[in-house]
Design a protein around this nucleic acid. Structure first.
Lengths: 207, 207
DNA sequence: CGTGATCAATGACAGATGTCATGGTCCGGT
DNA sequence: ACCGGACCATGACATCTGTCATTGATCACG
């Protein structure tokens, strides 16, 4: 009816990017005007291409999709953001919404629904997977403090307490205290389990 | 020139599946005749649709793409297999080839190359990412014994030695010995690090 | 101002973990 | 028959971890 909706695609996997472009290109009212594979190229590309809607993956090199969302919202208020990601981590959805995203769909959803999601987002509506939304509310926000999150994130590499202490410039006793607190709050019985649980909930940093 | 190439798509993410179908559907000589989201539906679907080439992801529910490859090769010798996966783990490539796959591409590669890969595979050629092939040769096969692999795989969950011993019906001392051996062979200094390294190399089971 | 939350650190302690030596069984290859 | 390798187990040992109590410093909030 009006003009075509101009899309930007951001995904680190080139093949998925191209496939999504082919999929959305079949819709007569949609047009892919930019493709990038890194989070730190999103704003630049969106500005140059005058995109109406940006489809962003969460895990990308350079800058994650959540931070990229905040950048886009701050610098290009006319460009809406739709997160399209592999992992339906509750924490991701929460952070995406806080960053100003208009929608959040996981790649598990049928392909035919994507074009509709884009249109809804473009018309100002919000698009959120209902199941994931419920899960997000039940899981709640991260119970971890900032420092605990940092320590647990660093613990993903699998190093010893001494390694973490060195990397974070902390006493090894302090590191153990933070880890102990994180283990308690996540309901885990082991450091490794705490890392896994926190990761599944999207509570860790720089994925 | 001759007839169209009949394709089967297997990927657990519906959106990616649909997007790949749209991408490959643009090629006049290719035709997507079946789509499945589980590994244990591949053979059945391939038989019914008389697919010429099966594009399989590695991580799928029900049955992983590597085992599915072996099934296809055993029951449908006329159907070639092209693995299309997110992770370029050296172990995956090795196991895929041993299972009889004709090609192995990661989703990082540009979308335009996919159709060519399909055509090459269909004509009897092999398609392998050269970088990944080199990495596979340098990394070598898994140094872990069967039992060590099992124990390390079970350790992914993050449980204690007692948990692993219970789950595997082993003495806790035996578990610690296997873990110690795995840590030594992987060059790690921690159980968690050993898990991470083994996972990155594709040495663990049931992904 | 007082209160509470977070952060950092220390010391102490029980329990878990990683390493090693040792011994046994069961295979497959020579 | 012999050997080596994988597998299971035990016991011992040093070290690492996780927990707890306690102490201070800082900062935000009412």
């Amino acid at each position: 009816m009006t003009e075509t909706i101009r899309l930007l695609l951001a995904d680190d996997q080139a093949m998925v990017r191209g496939a999504l472009a082919a999929l959305l290109g079949l819709e007569p009212d949609l047009e892919v005007v930019a493709e990038v594979g890194r989070g730190d190229e999103v704003v630049e590309a969106a500005r140059r291409s005058h995109a109406d809607v940006a489809l962003l993956d969460v895990e990308m090199p350079g800058l994650d999709g959540l931070s990229a969302t905040a950048q886009v919202r701050a610098e290009l208020p006319l460009c809406r953001v739709l997160i399209v990601t592999t992992f339906g981590r509750p924490g991701y959805l929460r952070r995406a919404m806080e960053a100003g995203a208009s929608g959040f769909v996981v790649k598990d959803t049928p392909a035919r629904q994507l074009a509709d999601a884009v249109r809804r987002v473009h018309s100002g509506l919000r698009v959120v997977d209902p199941v994931l939304a419920a899960e997000t509310l039940s899981t709640g926000i991260s119970p971890l403090t900032g420092r605990e999150t940092e320590v647990l994130t660093a613990a993903r590499a699998g190093g010893t307490v001494a390694d973490l202490a060195r990397a974070l410039n902390l006493s090894s006793g302090t590191v153990r205290n933070h880890l102990s607190a994180a283990i308690g709050k996540t309901g885990a019985r082991t450091r490794a389990e705490a890392v896994r649980l926190a990761e599944e909930n999207g509570w860790l940093l720089r994925p």
